[in-house]
Write a protein that binds this DNA or RNA. Structure first.
Length: 854
DNA sequence: TTATCTAGCGTTTTT
DNA sequence: CGCTAGATAA
C-alpha cells in the first residue's frame, strides 16, 4: 500500500497509470482508503493548495471552452442541468467545472461530491482534473462511483442499520446462493421459482428504494406471494452475516439519511457542491440520495443525455433527468450541442433516428466540420456473409481504401446488440487471422478462480464467513459433497456456531466417514493456521527444510509465522489448500490462464497493507481493463460502447427482432422500443469518420434458420446521409433492398469467385428469370412509403399464394413440402433441412425453382 | 460423490 | 446450435 498510496499522494498517478492496469486499478482504492476518515480529508484540505493562489491568476483552462461549456463551468451556484449530447465535451466541462470550483477557492477538494457510475469514469475524471490543476491537486476524496462513495459513508454509519463497519459486500453469486437457501427454507419449489428471479425482484425493489416494509401492496403477489416475506428474510440474513449487497449500499444510505436528520445535516453541510455524471442512468435510490444531500444548498450539477439512457431495464429512470427542473426549481439548463467527434453525415443519421422518440428534452447536435463520408448501409444474405464482409472491409481499411488513408485496427470497432452476435465475428476473424479484442467479458473479480481464492482469503480473515466456507469446502474436490455439507450445517446450527466451528465439531465427533473426515480435518487445521498467521502471533515451528521450489516457505512446515506478510500468506493459502495444485492438474485449455489470474491477484495484494484492507475495498472495484497491448479490432456490445469513440464503427445485425430486440419490445412495449432506439443513437454516435450499418436477410437463431427483416431503425435513417452499398432492387428501392441482394448469396459466390465489391456490381445474376420474379414479387410489396407498417398485410398476401401440401423451394434450404401457415410464416418440412418457419417471400413454388440462377 | 447425460433455454450490465 | 443446471447413473 505504501508504494501506491505514497506515489498517488505525490501526484504520480499518471505515471502509475501507464504502468499497467493493476496499479491503475488499485490506485483508486488506495486513495479512498487513504481518505477514509474525515480527519484525513481535512488534512488534505489543509494542505496549502496552489489553487488558492490561482484565483488571482487568469484561468487559461476557460479559454478552450465553447460558450455553452463555459456557462456550465462558470455557473457554480444553484442547480445546473448540463444536457450534453454525444461527443460534446461533457467530461471536459465536468472536470473543468471541478477545477474551477477549486481554482476560484469556491470549494475545497473534500467539499465536492462527484459521483459517476463506473470506476473507469471516476478514474478518468481524477486524472483529467489532475492535469487541469497541475500536479498540485490532492486526491478528491469524494470523487468516485455511487457505490464506492456510499460504501465509504456506510462504513462510518453502519451501526445505524444494524451492521458493523467491516461488513462484507456480496456479489451476485453470493446473493443467489443465499436466495436459494432461503427459498428452500421457505418450502418453495425452486424449480418454478428460481432464485435468480427472486434476486432480480429484490434488486428492482432496492433500485426503487423500497425496504421490505415499503414494498407497495401492488407488488405483494411477486414471487408466489412470498416475495416480500423472502425479502425480509433475506435482509435479516444479510444482517446476521454482517453483509450487504450492491443495492443495499445505496438503500442503507438513503435509509440513514431519511431516519437520522443529524447525519444528513452533517453531510449536507459537508458536501457543498455536488456533481453527477450520467444522470440519465440514475435509479430512484440514487436519485433520492442525491436529492437528500442537495436539498439544503442546492448546488448540484447533473450531467447527462436523455437520448443516451440505455439502462432502463436495470432500474435507471430517465424521468430523473426529465424532471430535473421540477425537482430543482430555477435550475439552470445548459445544452452542449456542438459535437467534436463525428462527421455531419454521421450526426445527421443519428439525429434522424433519435428524432422518432417522444418526450425528449431535445437537443440538436451540430458540428463545424463539413467533410466526411455518408453512413454506409449494406445488406447481406446471411450472418456468415456479414461477418465475412466486415472482415474484408476491415482489412481493406487497414490498407487504405477509397481514397482514405490506412486505419489502424485500434481505430475500428464492431458494436453489436447482444453478445452472442460476437461469435460470428470472432470465428471469422480467427480464421483469417485478424487480431481482435472483446471488450466486456467476465470481469476479473468475477472469474471463478478469483472468487474461490477470495473466499479462502475471507476465511483466513474471519472464520464466521459462512458463505465463503460453503464456496470452498469442496473446492478443490475433497470428497465433501452435499451430505457432508449438510452434516456440517446441521452441527453448526445445533450448536449455534459458524460453519467452520461446525466443521471442527464434526471432525472432533467423527460425524463423517473416512476420506471426508480426513480432508475436512486438514481443511480446518489449515484455516486455523492461516488465521493465526493473519492475526500475527507466532505459531509452532514444525519443520525447517520445507522451502518450496519457488523459494516461498510453506507455513505448514516453515519458519515462524510472524515472518510472513500477507502476500506470502496468500500464496501459502492457495498452495496449502491445494487450490493451486487443483488448477495445475487441470488439463483444460483455460487452466493456465486461471493460474495466471491467480498470480495477478496475489500481485495485486502488494498494494495493500493486509488481507482485510484488500477484501474491504476490492468488491467495489470490479474492473476489467486488462489493457491488452497490440493493434486489435474491438468487438463489444452497444452498451459497453457508451462513452467510447472510434474512427470507424461497424454496426451489424440491424434486423427487426434482433435490433430492436424483440424481447425489449415484448416486455416494455413502446418504452422498450425507444430505449432500443437510443441504443441505435449511441451506436451511430460512437463513429468519428465512418459508420457502417449492416443487416442480413437470414440468420441462424438458436440453430434454426430464420429470415430477417431489416431493422425499422434503418427506415429512420435519413436517406440523404446514407450510402447504400448494394444495388437497390427489392422493397422498391428502399433500404430493405439490399437485404435480398443476390450479390451476397453464398450460392452465387461459388459461381463467381470475386471480391464482394465486384460481386455487388456484377449484373448477370439479376438477368435471370427466377431472380426477376423474386424481385418483382418483393417490389410489389415494398413500394409503399412506409414499408414496415404494411409488411404484415403484404406478407399475409404473399402467404395466400400457397396451399398446404405444395412443393416449394427455398434458396438456402432447398426443396420441401408446405405443412401449414402460421401468420405470415410458412411452416415447411424441407427434404434436407428439416422443419422451418419461413417468411413467404423467400419461398417459390417448386416448379418455378428451376428458373432461379444457382 | 462424482461423472455423465439431457432438458431447457436463450438481451443488454455496473457496482 | 451450445450452454448450463439439474437429474440420473456409475
Amino acid at each position: 500500500m505504501q508504494c501506491v498510496a505514497e506515489q498517488f499522494r505525490q501526484g504520480k498517478l499518471g505515471t502509475l497509470c501507464e504502468q499497467g492496469f493493476s496499479c491503475l486499478r488499485f490506485a483508486g482504492i488506495v486513495s479512498s482508503m487513504n481518505d477514509f476518515s474525515e480527519e484525513d480529508a481535512f488534512e488534505a484540505a489543509a494542505v496549502p493548495l496552489s489553487q488558492r493562489a490561482m484565483s488571482a491568476r487568469p484561468m487559461p483552462y476557460l479559454d478552450s471552452l465553447n460558450p455553452a461549456q463555459r456557462e456550465a463551468v462558470e455557473t457554480l451556484n444553484g442547480p445546473v442541468l448540463m444536457l450534453a449530447g454525444a461527443g460534446t465535451g461533457k467530461t471536459k466541462a465536468l472536470t473543468t467545472r471541478i477545477a474551477h470550483l477549486l481554482a476560484t477557492g469556491t470549494a475545497r477538494p473534500h467539499e465536492i461530491l462527484a459521483v459517476t457510475f463506473t470506476n473507469k469514469a471516476a478514474r478518468e475524471m481524477k486524472s483529467r482534473i489532475g492535469s487541469l490543476m497541475g500536479e498540485a491537486v490532492e486526491g478528491m476524496p469524494w470523487l468516485g462511483t455511487f457505490h464506492s462513495v456510499c460504501a465509504k459513508l456506510l462504513r462510518r454509519h453502519a451501526e445505524l442499520v444494524g451492521l458493523k463497519s467491516n461488513f462484507t459486500i456480496l456479489d451476485t453469486d453470493d446473493q443467489i446462493r443465499l436466495m436459494k437457501q432461503l427459498i428452500e427454507a421457505a418450502g418453495i419449489d425452486a424449480k418454478r421459482w428460481p432464485p435468480r428471479m427472486l434476486s432480480g425482484i429484490i434488486d428492482n425493489w432496492k433500485n426503487k428504494a423500497w425496504t421490505p416494509d415499503n414494498v407497495p401492496v401492488a407488488d405483494s403477489a411477486a414471487f408466489d406471494h412470498q416475495g416480500i416475506a423472502l425479502y425480509t428474510a433475506y435482509q435479516k440474513r444479510l444482517r446476521d452475516l454482517n453483509a450487504v449487497d450492491f443495492g443495499d449500499i445505496l438503500l442503507h444510505m438513503v435509509t440513514i439519511f431519511q431516519k437520522h436528520e443529524d447525519v444528513l445535516d452533517q453531510y449536507q453541510r459537508w458536501f457543498r457542491y455536488i456533481l453527477v455524471d450520467e444522470y440519465q442512468d440514475t435509479n430512484v435510490a440514487q436519485y433520492l440520495w442525491l436529492r437528500l444531500l442537495a436539498s439544503k444548498h442546492k448546488n448540484i450539477c447533473c450531467v447527462g443525455d436523455d437520448d443516451q439512457s440505455i439502462y432502463g431495464w436495470r432500474g435507471a429512470e430517465v424521468g430523473n433527468i426529465l424532471r430535473f427542473e421540477t425537482d430543482f426549481p430555477g435550475a439552470h439548463v445548459v445544452r452542449l450541442e456542438e459535437n467534436y467527434r463525428s462527421t455531419p453525415h454521421i450526426l445527421a443519421a443519428a439525429s434522424g433516428v433519435i428524432a422518432a422518440n417522444k418526450g425528449r428534452l431535445g437537443k440538436t447536435l451540430f458540428t463545424s466540420r463539413e467533410d466526411g463520408e455518408k453512413v454506409r448501409l449494406i445488406g447481406h444474405w446471411d450472418g456468415e456473409e456479414e461477418s465475412r464482409w466486415v472482415g474484408e472491409e476491415i482489412e481493406a481499411m487497414q490498407r487504405g481504401t477509397r481514397g482514405m488513408s490506412p486505419l489502424g485496427l485500434d481505430s475500428m470497432a464492431i458494436l453489436v446488440r447482444a453478445s452472442h452476435q460476437m461469435r460470428a465475428f470472432e470465428d471469422r476473424f480467427l480464421s483469417i487471422g485478424l487480431p481482435y479484442r472483446v471488450i466486456g467479458g467476465p470481469r476479473f473479480y468475477e472469474r471463478m478462480e478469483i472468487r474461490d481464492a477470495m473466499a479462502y482469503f475471507r476465511l483466513a480473515v474471519s472464520h464466521d464467513d459462512d458463505l465463503a466456507f460453503e464456496r470452498i469446502v469442496n473446492t478443490p474436490k475433497r470428497g465433501l459433497g452435499d451430505k457432508a455439507v449438510q452434516t456440517i450445517q446441521r452441527t453448526a446450527r445445533d450448536n449455534d456456531v459458524s460453519l467452520v466451528e461446525g466443521a471442527r465439531l464434526v471432525c472432533q465427533g467423527k460425524l463423517l466417514g473416512g476420506k471426508g473426515l480426513k480432508e475436512l480435518t486438514i481443511l480446518v487445521d489449515g484455516l486455523d493456521r492461516w488465521r493465526s498467521v493473519t492475526r500475527g502471533p507466532a505459531m509452532p515451528v514444525i519443520d525447517d527444510d520445507a522451502v518450496l521450489d519457488d523459494g516461498l516457505v510453506d507455513a505448514g512446515f516453515g519458519t515462524e509465522a510472524a515472518d510472513y506478510n500477507h502476500v506470502e500468506l496468500a500464496e501459502m493459502i492457495l498452495d496449502e489448500s491445494g487450490y493451486t495444485g487443483f488448477w495445475q492438474n487441470d488439463k483444460t485449455p483455460e487452466a493456465p490462464g486461471r493460474l495466471e489470474n491467480l498470480k495477478e491477484l496475489v500481485k495485486a495484494l502488494e498494494n495493500f497493507e493486509n488481507l482485510q484492507g484488500f477484501l474491504e475495498h476490492v468488491s467495489l472495484i470490479m474492473d476489467n481493463e486488462t489493457e491488452e497491448q497490440g493493434e486489435k479490432v474491438s468487438i463489444m456490445t452497444l452498451h459497453a460502447a457508451k462513452g467510447l469513440e472510434f474512427p470507424a464503427v461497424f454496426l451489424p445485425g440491424w434486423e427487426d427482432g434482433l435490433f430492436p430486440s424483440q424481447r425489449s419490445m415484448d416486455e416494455s412495449g413502446l418504452k422498450g422500443l425507444e430505449e432500443e432506439r437510443r441504443l441505435a443513437y449511441v451506436g451511430i454516435t460512437r463513429a468519428e469518420e465512418l459508420c457502417t450499418i449492416s443487416f442480413a436477410a437470414n440468420r441462424r437463431v438458436y440453430g434454426q434458420w430464420q429470415s430477417q427483416l431489416p431493422s425499422r431503425f434503418i427506415d429512420e435513417l435519413p436517406e440523404q446521409h446514407v450510402e447504400v452499398l448494394t444495388p437497390p432492387g427489392l422493397y422498391g428501392g428502399n433500404y430493405g433492398a439490399a437485404g435480398m441482394s443476390a450479390s451476397a448469396s453464398p450460392a452465387i459466390a461459388g459461381a463467381a469467385k470475386s471480391t464482394l465489391h465486384e460481386k455487388a456490381h456484377s449484373a448477370d445474376v439479376y438477368d435471370s428469370p427466377g431472380w426477376k420474379r423474386l424481385q418483382s414479387r418483393s417490389q410489389q410489396r415494398g413500394t409503399s412509403a412506409t414499408p414496415r407498417a404494411q409488411s404484415v398485410t403484404i406478407d399475409l398476401e404473399a402467404v395466400s399464394a400457397f396451399t398446404v401440401g405444395d412443393r416449394v423451394f427455398h434458396q438456402k434450404f432447398g426443396y420441401g413440402e408446405l405443412m401449414g401457415i402460421e401468420g405470415d410464416k410458412l411452416v415447411i418440412e424441407f427434404d434436407k433441412a428439416g422443419s422451418k418457419h419461413v417468411v413467404a417471400r423467400f419461398i417459390v413454388a417448386a416448379d418455378q425453382a428451376d428458373d432461379i440462377p444457382f
